[in-house]
Design a protein around this nucleic acid. Sequence first.
RNA 1: GCCGAGGUGGCGGAAUUGGUAGACGCACUGGCUUCAGGUGCCAGCGUUCGCAAGGACAUGGGGGUUCGAGUCCCCCCUUCGGCACCA
Length: 1003
Amino acid sequence: MEGRYIPENIEGKWQKKWEEQGTFRQYGRERKFYALDMFPYPSGAGLHVGHPKGYIATDVIARMKQLQGYAVLHPMGWDAFGLPAEQYAIKNKTHPSKTTRENVATFKGQLGRLGFTYDWDREINTTDPEYYKWTQWIFLQMLKKGLAYESYEPIIWCPSCQTGLANEDLENGACERCGTIVEKKPMRQWVLRITDYADRLLEGLGSLDWPESIKESQRNWIGRSEGTVIRFQIINPKLQFPNKSQNTDSKSQTKEEFIEVFTTRVDTLYGCTYVVVAPEHPLIREQLTDNSEQIAEIKNWEEVRAYIEETKKKTEMERTAEGREKTGVRLEGIMAVNPINGEEVPVFVADYVLGDYGTGAVMAVPAHDTRDFAFAKKYDLPIKNVIMPHLTDKKNPPREGKKSVERNTIHALVRNPKDGKFLCLEWKNHPWTTFIVGGVEDGEDIVEAAKREVLEETGFSNLRHIGTLDRKVRSEYFAAHKDENRVANTTAVLFELEDESRESVTEEEVAKHSVLWLSLDEIRNREMTCAELDIWLGWLEGKDDAFVDDGALTDSSEFSGLSSEAAREKINAKLEADGNGKKVVKYKLREWVFSRQRYWGEPIPVVHCEKCGVVPVPENELPVFLPDVESYEPTGTGESPLAAIESWVNTTCPTCGGPAKRETNTMPQWAGSSWYYLRYIDPLNQDVLVGKELEKEWMPVDVYVGGAEHATRHLIYARFWHKFLFDIGAISTDEPFRKLCNVGLILASDGRKMSKRWGNVVNPDDMVRDFGADAMRLYEMFMGPFNQNISWNTDGVVGTRRFLEKVWKLQNRLTTDNLPPTTEESGLTTDNSSATSPCADPLAKTSGQPTKIDCLLHRTIVKVMEDIEAMRFNTAVSTLMILVNAFEKEGTITKESYGIFLLLLSPFAPHIAEELWAGLGNPESIFLSTWPVADLALLVEDTVKIVVSVNGKVRDTFEVPADATEDDLKAKAFASDKIAKFLDGREPKRVIVVPGKLVNVVV
RNA sequence: GCCGAGGUGGCGGAAUUGGUAGACGCACUGGCUUCAGGUGCCAGCGUUCGCAAGGACAUGGGGGUUCGAGUCCCCCCUUCGGCACCA
């Protein structure tokens, strides 16, 4: 009756109407919902089908929320500062603002054809002076609070992009943008003190409804660790007798006489056998610049200097490359004193210690740190075990209420060189197989004790000592033969049999156990009564690693025996009491290097005055406009192209009126995106960046959708700025994004990323032309779990288009009354159950009662709503498809049901829903209607299908009323001849009945 | 190495608290229709044995718990993502 479904005839029409009538600007409503997309960078390539996926999702949510009665804020804008536009400008001599304008127009056109509900009156462009005025304003507030400062520390420099970068802009030591290996370059730069917020950024994560992976990335990035800074006194002839009276140089007055190290493992302090400082450490840096007298402190200064020079030449990449061999040089003539025991240890400089983390120096504990271990092995430094692995014997765990006895023990591993088998004991009164075990008397030699035990228990008398595992292992177990819990600190001792000569063994020993020779394989396969077995086997195989886990202390004076955790507390307390250490928290997060030596970004709003120094541009003079330049080329000297524009650079000081020069660095691309979501709320406000009342109404963002690649930049920066704005009272919320959802990539059909380079890009315009915007939207929501990467398949769009064709045709089957279906087979008439439910009774239709299809419809209402809410768009769409298939089978559909269905469909396929809604005679937009509410009575299942299985295998099914009793089900199950066949005369051993579900017969 | 998320037909993927594995869609096959040429209709479609009825086997691999496991537990393999000489 309405002709064919031709999307192009209806989509543009409704898009125009929605815009003209302000259908999606229902801001007056009481309840607010803010749906936000990560705004795009308007590149020259235009959109491919991957871009809109997230936008479609927020659009679906926005439309449903509006139907549910919310005022919905759903804006869009452009993150338009950045290098690509600038590079394009350099190449084509076109002003970046022109390129940006053109690209934005392209993007906007493409988005428009997909029928989004954006309010373009709130469009934001980060390059718009009206916008970046406020970006600059925020910077000035940070300056005021001391959160923005100038620094001359070496920074990361990308030689290809010709600009400094933040730590976050690196990917495996290379520039994230261009892949170039970066360098360190000392230069003046602006830095934001983001680490002041490290703790709050970390804590705030807890309350956020974000994907766990993103939260975890941020936790990794912030990298909080609790540890201790410990002072190691330096012993050096010059420092011990400092000739301070002769030297008035203030630098040498404050010269450090100790090295501060940072460790998270203060429990290993007794195992420290040397100290390492980074090449950047002040102890050495001073040596480089100071006079010759002081250089003499390090006797091998030339060697040390050469090492440091070499380190400097290496890129960050080379220095931190995985598996790189450790290098370093000892500082001759200097010793450091371990404050816990007064032990003197040597000091090294090595580049495996990082200058910019912790204190730039570490105490090396080779026995319990893999890096120190590797270094100690290479330079043959002592390795001192102070942490015992701490095991609990799982086969004989300690028992509650039994007394506990701690003792030192040995395990003698005795190998017969003839066949490589090991001497074991098989116990007679216990199901045990052990090595030769025994206690060590006080003061007794370990090896002697082991020999004694072998002799006593087995009689073998002629042993050759091969080795002793210097790492003791603590294990706890229940010793049944003594009825007590044991804490054994065990040393393994390896022997070989010289010969098989054997002395007699006492009756007592013979009664306890018998000798058994086992090969290593047999030992591995047998249930040995030995918690330490894995460690012993590792030792025999020649494994040689640091033991880095927590354990129990040994050889640590009064702390011996404590657990690592307890020891940390006690040792910290002692260090603190003696003034030799204090607990501290360190972060991996580095300050945000905020200046870029490029043109296309927000000018940093300060001037440099000869008299007054750095002076902020007064707020009423903002924005500091980005001037036009002749050449956008970076100077390469570390100065921005802006430096060349004298008329712009030269200005007067706002404070003293004297001559001053403008700051020529610009802000990184991440500046504008760190607060844009606030400006959408109040885009035209001339007085403040966002009006307080409006901010309170809309914030925080209810759902924020975008790619996971922004985990450690945009999403940290934005949270940082947001918390800052909260602190200065500009806004009322502490976190910007309550719920975050990651959109999965759409890959090309070849499985690669869509890119011009591979020639595999699919343009959404083509999809809209061939299948319509609605089919394209549906497909992107249907193709799989929203947050998953999935390959594009245009055939899939055919499927959703077919679905819409079916929807379109359903309008020919409308009934206004509730007459029975005109087609004979409804699929339901085969249902011959005796159910009384309206949903199961096909005759109910004639009496105007709800039918099975109504039940399905109402279940669909619930399911679609829940799925959209939970971002499970794929199953929401499939539920709609199931409903349509059922409608088709039904033959007819009431106007009312069709209307409800169209409402459910409308968030996904708004144009066709709107068209068909109008076709039903509704004068007003479907989106000004209300979301259907499910009738609870129709959701209750009245009949259920019961599965009958025999031994867990399904053999039959039948339908019963939902309230059928267990006995009913049992009776019905046994009445089935199929079941009888499988029982085959056997007596059921057991019958499990789950009412409403199944009957399982066990035979 | 550490952390996080996964592994189900030919493909994308469904499966409340453990309770008929494979919904929905694509592709494919057969038939119908149509001016054949990516948008029509009907049926079939995990593998395997069988003419069929029906049976056996199936959710990365191996164990375990259970009347019953894609789902819970242990071990292993593997894919993707984050961090990584951060002491």
